[in-house]
Design a protein around this nucleic acid. Structure first.
Lengths: 225, 225
DNA sequence: GCAAAAGTGTTTGGGATACACCCATGC
DNA sequence: GCATGGGTGTATCCCAAACACTTTTGC
């Protein structure tokens, strides 16, 4: 096993695609790069994964440092997305980036150490690297995720109205759904239960509040849509 | 960017889960490890991914060296599966493994440089590392892949009978399907077309031969099952 | 009373499921 | 002629899709 002595691994990085729904639009968190390369451009939060850290550990550390978010506490869901053989971020050579996709709900990003913002996925600014591609790949994954699992819970508060739930689907699918069919379908899926609370906002009939029976990923009995 | 000088990446490895259907069973290719660790145990073919190689390039090189297979020519399909933060393969520390899932059809493995064999996924031998978990993860992925895409083409010769196609689904789903319903459904999906050839084997009615209209991944209009 | 969002049922068509017999061939 | 696998049709049920009005509230 002599060759192990000479073995030099490629640079390993981790990146996060963080989704949140704002004003009924699917948005993604981007950070303005403070340094070269791509200084001043918007990019996914991410960084170097050194030896002795798992990719999740590295991601957690980096995201905490760069944007002040704790992936364990502040995200309602996270999963590994894909590993990209990206164009060199590091002048030394080829870099491999393990990407994660996460969701949050009403995240407070005011105290972030860097300039960060949520952008609608449909109107991304010019981004560094191939990050726009990664966001679209993640969007597609999330779209199928909510069709065959209960993943929509990750975008909602603990209790929510059926209209809010429908807006999550509409934002991610990027199309309108029929209100009656949506409700009928979702209620028969047996994933959510009525609470005794109601939401009173504005000059109209108050809405019943529901909650997900489980907030871990479950596959649907009948796939959605 | 001083810290880049100190940055040491983790070991990066690539591994291949290669599926083939043999005797109507879903099988996976394993290689007997010639060296420690896990010397003598069965494992997925894989190896170190050095700097300056993409994961696909490294996989191609390693698989060619270790088992004499060209991932470009000998596989009917390949995709990235998942990146595992595996237990250390290398005594130096934590290793990250990018895994791929591929399919072959009637592969010739007689001239492989190492001892390799196909094992039914349902009856795996004791495997090195977490490789049994990786195989089952890949199996699950393949199972959904054939439900919403035409991926079954990857397990079949250029032309095939409907019974052979059904056997692919049965092997991967690990259950019997109704012959009439399967045929009706598949023919209305409009993915395959009749050829003018027929297959005559054995003392029974000959079978029409079909072919896939496309041998690249396409999503089905209506998901299967 | 009126604006605004919540809530609610029925009809129709298509596809999934269940199920059993005839057909073409080699020997 | 018989064993073997190829090939075919129908009835039922459930679900998806289409579609519009009533209810409850704040002002």
């Amino acid at each position: 096993m002599n060759y192990k002595k000479q073995y030099i691994p490629p640079t390993l990085t981790v990146d996060l695609v963080l989704f949140q729904i704002i004003n009924n639009e699917l948005c993604v968190l981007l950070m303005k790069r403070p340094n070269d390369p791509f200084k001043g451009m918007w990019a996914l939060p991410g960084g170097y994964n050194p030896e002795s850290e798992t990719t999740m550990e590295a991601l957690n550390r980096i995201v905490k440092n760069k944007i002040g978010i704790d992936t364990n506490k502040d995200l309602s869901y996270i999963e590994q997305l894909y590993t990209f053989d990206t164009v060199a971020r590091d002048p030394r050579g080829h870099a491999v980036s393990v990407t994660y996709m996460g969701c949050s709900q009403n995240l407070n990003i005011d105290k972030a150490p860097n300039e960060i913002a949520f952008f609608p996925v449909a109107k991304l600014p010019k981004t560094a690297y191939d990050h726009a591609d990664i966001v679209h790949y993640a969007h597609k994954r999330m779209s199928s995720k909510i069709t065959y699992t209960n993943a929509a819970f990750a975008f909602l508060a603990d209790t929510f109205t059926l209209t809010e739930l429908q807006f999550v689907y509409e934002a991610i699918f990027d199309r309108k759904l029929d209100k009656r069919n949506f409700r009928k379908k979702f209620l028969t899926l047996n994933l959510i239960s009525e609470t005794k609370k109601i939401q009173k906002v504005g000059a109209h009939r108050p809405a019943k509040l529901y909650k997900f029976k489980s907030k871990s990923i479950e596959e649907l009995a009948r796939s959605f849509e």
